[in-house]
Amino acid sequence: MEYNYIKALHLIFVITWFAGLFYIVRLFVYHAEAKQKPQPEQDILIKQYQLMQYRLWYIITWPSAVLASFFAFYLLYLNPAWLTQAWMHVKLAFVLLLYMYHAKCHQIFNQLQKGEVKHTSSFFRIWNEGATIILFAVVFLVILKNAINWIYGVIGIISFSILIMIGFKFYKRIREKNKK
């Protein structure tokens, strides 16, 4: 019974962690776009986005990442045999990518809190898909528990990424057309 409670808590915090990652990058998009606004609108929006980013990052995203990781390690402690399975090795590689993605988001967060906008809103829209790709990979690995066909999964993820990029370019054209 303990295992099921820990698994449920792990899943809850993984979901809130991803929700935080999805929304923080969306706020980065808005922040970058606010830099293009005239004064005083720019200052008002940026101040509001910085506050929203701060609260999201430190009240939801970071605690969720820590708790999801804690419960994951606890699950591995309860079931160490998973560490001998190939699907878990692939999953852990994607989790490592997720930690790297989170770290990069933290770096961007810090820059934006200092008023440094080093990326465009287009960059952030593409960057936002990184978490989506990792989420797809991890969910399929956990549900299917099959790392033998991981090549098909990688091909699927790359195909999915290409579709997202095409959709993004199509959406960008529509937005630019509507601005005229």
Rank of each mutant, 00 (worst) to 15 (best):
Y101C: 00
H102L: 07
I46R: 02
K91T: 09
K91M: 09
E41D: 07
N79P: 05
H106M: 01
L51G: 08
Y99G: 08
I60S: 04
N79A: 13
K35A: 15
T84W: 11
F136M: 03
I44K: 12
I60N: 11
W62L: 12
A34E: 00
V66A: 13
G130T: 05
H89C: 03
T120R: 04
Q85W: 05
P63I: 04
G130D: 00
A65D: 03
Y58I: 07
A86V: 12
L67R: 03
I134R: 03
L98P: 00
A131Q: 02
S69M: 10
A137S: 12
S121V: 01
K35S: 14
D43E: 15
D43Y: 13
S69W: 12
F136E: 00
Y77N: 05
I126L: 10
L51Q: 14
F123K: 00
S69F: 14
L112W: 05
V90T: 10
Y101A: 00
L92P: 00
G115Q: 04
V66M: 08
I60A: 06
G130Y: 00
Y54E: 14
P63A: 01
I46Y: 05
H119Q: 14
E116L: 08
L96H: 00
S64L: 03
W127K: 03
I44S: 11
R55E: 07
Q85C: 01
Y74A: 04
V90H: 14
Q53P: 01
D43A: 15
L51V: 10
K37Q: 13
H102F: 15
V90R: 14
W82N: 08
I59Y: 13
